[in-house]
Amino acid sequence: MPDPIVRVEDVGLRFDKFTALDGVSLSVETGQCIVICGPSGSGKSTLLRCINGLERFQAGEVFVDGVRVRDNTDLPKLRRGIGMVFQHFELYPHMTVLENITLAPIRAKGVPRAQAEKLARDYLERVGIADQADKYPGRLSGGQQQRAAIARALALEPKVMLFDEPTSALDPEMIAEVLYVMRDLARGGMTMLVVTHEMGFAREVADEVIFMDRGRVVERSGVKEFFTAPRADRTKEFLNKILVKF
């Protein structure tokens, strides 16, 4: 069996008195789509940021594609292999959509501009907003902005994609278009780690679901099992709370 693309071992992280992560371990195989859910403050987003070295953890180890993430790691090089999508899109407001996407390929990977632009247009096509390439992010709808942000991450041609609550800042009518793109990616074989409360997406697309609470992984199971027969009481409680809405 090949090495997992992402391996997190017993990671711990404290801010002052608050324990954000408390001995978290997980692994992601190439091609898997894993959904992480849990109440707010449970450490889901922090965990994602530890994987691409945006957050420094104090205990444990993280490996991405065999590279160990720690202080002296070449972080820019590591991050070029990991795409990340943020809750609030974080497109650069002073650049056009196309410039947003080509910035890192040109500056961080040294791809020639013409080639980077072609690549960018291909990915914009793929997320369905090829016609928006030359607009500024402020002119786009929320759903279009998030799809542009996904294209920006994809343009790195990453081995794994991290999604940090990609739909929770969106109006309801725009959630579907973003989930559609993500579903398409997962089916295309992209390795994905998705923090989300979209249980419909999890049920349909995810290979496994992880439930986190208070900085710990409470439960990890296959999708069917997770929704029909959760093991931990806290998972049941959480599912009751969020599924009752639908």
Partner: peptide, 13 residues
């Protein structure tokens, strides 16, 4: 800070 994180996450120094 979030814009900085976005930039860093794409592999920029």
């Amino acid at each position: 800070n979030r814009q900085i994180q976005a930039g860093l996450s794409t592999g920029l120094t």
